[in-house]
Amino acid sequence: MAEIATRMGPLDGRSLATNAVVIEAARPASRIALRAPSASLAALSLALGVDLPDRPKSAASRGTRHAFWLGPDEWLIIDEDRTDLNVACRGAEVLHSCVDVSHRNTAILVSGARVEDVLSAGCPQDLSLEAFPVGACSRTVLGKIEIVLYRTAEDDFRIEVWRSFSDYAFTLLTEAARDLSS
């Protein structure tokens, strides 16, 4: 979409690099909350250009576009290039609900050798590669807030968080990193 104003994210300019991890705000992205019955998946996958995953705790990606399985009829679609996903969905004339949540969420990228330990300061799930492999994605909790956690590589995670909770998330991760680097 043509944009006149510049997006001002809640974490703009925030980053932290320690000997254990790097924590930084992700670039602004476009996002939709997609809901659909299974019969609609094929058409929606075609329209979005990414195969909507149907397994729990999984995700699919093509280029900078990602589809996260959040629930049996729920996906979070992210386009890091900020392509209008609403438009893409409109192409699929099947039963579904597409709601723009581009600005509801913001994302934090956490990477580094101690990334599992940093996240484990607040996330109760087992984040070992066996239990949470590369490409795994899950809605879960981080301390006192809800997040969507996505493992992009062995040492890289993307955390999707509602914007007003992002300061809490970033601060908690900072504290956790402090524990690991001291």
Binding site: G143, S164, F165, Y168, T171
Partner: peptide, 15 residues
């Protein structure tokens, strides 16, 4: 644990 001060409870702020 970490849950004190700024992390005692999330503080939500509007844009």
């Amino acid at each position: 644990g970490h849950g004190r001060g700024a992390l005692f409870d999330p503080t939500r702020k509007t844009p």
